[in-house]
Amino acid sequence: MKLKFLALTLIALAFAAAATTASAQLTATANHDHITVDFFYHGSTVSVRGVSDPETDLVIKISSPEGHQTLRQKGKVGGLLWMNVGKLTFEHVPNLYFLHSTKNLTEMLSNEELNKYVLGYSALESHAEVAPVSGASEKNKWFDEFVKMKEASKVYATSSGKISTTAKDGLQEYYVLMDWPYQASPGEYTVSVYAVKGNKVVEQAESKVTVEQVGVVKSLAGMAKQSAAVYGIISIIAALGAGFGVGLIFRKGGGAH
């Protein structure tokens, strides 16, 4: 009995070792993982590259930590006038969500897998909570509006077929380059790469992208929050000084009376 158990354990360990070898193939590196926001920052680019098993499809997701967002909701009043009619709260939604895949998500993965890894807008909608809404169709309507707003701000985007792959040394090298919008606020973003085979995620690798304010931008943003009174007074004095200064320039310039 003991020998039988030992044999089974050894077989299981051998299978596990083989699986680890396979899963160790997926790598992910973001080339521009520390984006500095200085005075002249106008967005950046981020590329993600790595290697994977040659027979796998890939999904690359970049997202900020999940949180809640309260947005103003427009509606028609009296059947005629468009105005803000209330507020909607979106829970468990990231501020930034980029998703690139080698094929259409629905061709690659089952709904269960999509929902499990929150891949694609439909999965994100299932994952998110929207309140107050009366039912599923209303949730769907307002989640579509949410995505529309985020896409307009360039912080949500999805694409398929944008990832380029090449075979090398029996492995698959992949690469994707994307614009990083200046609208993405400072913080840490997670790059998750999923290798897909047989409608399932078989491997996963992660990397990080950090966006950080530096120099004058960091000092001013910090001062606006931490020394708000001083910041307010400096803003006023600067405005008064500029107003008088320009007034004096015009007087010296012989402003006509």
Binding site: L240, A242, G243, F244, G247
Partner: peptide, 17 residues
């Protein structure tokens, strides 16, 4: 904040006359 500057400039210009 910018109106503080514009109105200082404008008030000064009008005050001179």
């Amino acid at each position: 904040n910018q109106i503080v500057a514009a109105s200082t400039s404008g008030t000064y210009a009008h005050w001179k006359v």
